[in-house]
């Protein structure tokens, strides 16, 4: 390849590229994309559609049904009896603390593992990395005994602590990968200016690693927002129950009212989807940044 001609042809090339993909090809591409996109969200559409139906309308033929009358009552029931608002706040509270503390601890750890010089850093890092493959369910039984001894049952800490601990390996992986790519010269000059290590981490490293921290937060958010087996085991009173429990509670209580069950599922699903759509740009950028550098 001659670099020269490449440069001169670049403009032409770009124009050609747009045209080159013939309209027919483009159309096929879009049809395929829409097809799969529909497959991905169809169940969601179906869920919302049925949440407006009476339980009796569920049976019979037809895949999507235009409701004879919109059963808003389903939503009223869901909101009142599913305790959705409270569970939503609980979920937000627990997840937020988890992802912030996890990011914070992981940043310190990854700094120590990539920058500081100490004998055991290799083995120590490998050790934590092994945690990535430990299934959270394997710790369910002993953790219950542990929390009981600590009187932490029915306390948000019983979720936050394991959530953070299990977030560490993957967060560490991404953050330390990112840190490796940051030139040390910036830190060195800061140290010359009399900055402590903690100062370096929080004044200099943290702003630079923001994209990677965002990735870590997002990945952890997804996993813990949806976690429910621990939540169901360690929390006993409704005060701290998280959102996934709402649906479990509701299917028990409204077992014969399908419409209301679907309404509560829609209520649980929609906020995450909306939040996600709002942050989709940051989310993709974060994952991109972390993945490419990591």
């Amino acid at each position: 390849m001659e670099a020269l001609s490449a440069k001169t042809h670049r403009e032409v090339n770009k124009a050609r590229k747009k045209d080159a993909a013939s309209p027919a090809l483009k159309a096929i591409l879009h049809i395929v994309l829409w097809g799969v996109a529909l497959l991905q969200i169809f169940p969601l559409i179906w869920l919302i559609n049925y949440s407006f139906l009476k339980s009796g309308d569920f049976f019979g033929s037809g895949i999507l049904k235009w409701p004879k009358s919109f059963e808003w009552n389903n939503y009223v029931n869901a909101f009142t009896y599913g305790s959705v608002p409270r569970f939503l706040l609980n979920s937000l509270f627990i997840t937020t603390i988890t992802i912030l503390v996890a990011a914070f601890l992981a940043l310190m750890l990854s700094y120590a593992f990539t920058r500081m010089q100490w004998k055991l850093r290799g083995p120590a890092m490998a050790f934590i990395m092994l945690g990535m493959i430990v299934p959270i369910h394997a710790t369910l039984l002993p953790n219950f005994i542990l929390f009981d001894k600590l009187s932490l049952i029915d306390n948000p800490l019983s979720l936050i602590l394991p959530y953070i601990a299990f977030s560490l390996p993957i967060s560490l992986l991404i953050l330390s990968g990112f840190l490796e790519t940051i030139p040390r010269s910036i830190e060195e000059s800061a140290v010359m200016d009399g900055c402590s290590v903690f100062g370096v981490i929080f004044r200099i490293i943290m702003p630079i690693t923001k994209p990677a921290i965002a990735t870590v937060c997002i990945m952890n958010f997804i996993s813990w927002w949806n976690e429910f087996i621990m939540a169901n085991t360690f929390l006993t009173s409704e005060t701290f129950k998280t959102l996934p429990f709402s649906i479990m509670k509701f299917t028990g209580q409204y077992s014969s009212n399908y419409g209301a069950q679907f309404a509560v599922m829609a209520i649980i699903a929609l906020p995450t989807v909306i939040i996600y759509l709002m942050f989709t740009e940051q989310m993709s950028r974060g994952i991109t940044a972390g993945a490419v550098k990591g």
Binding site: L105, L157, R203
Partner: peptide, 22 residues
């Protein structure tokens, strides 16, 4: 760890402290 890092990480401090308050 939180307080020593507080100069640069204000938002972490408040949140990290709250579970024990709770």
């Amino acid at each position: 760890a939180c307080s020593s890092g507080s100069n640069g990480a204000n938002e972490n401090k408040g949140n990290a402290a709250s579970p024990s308050n709770e």
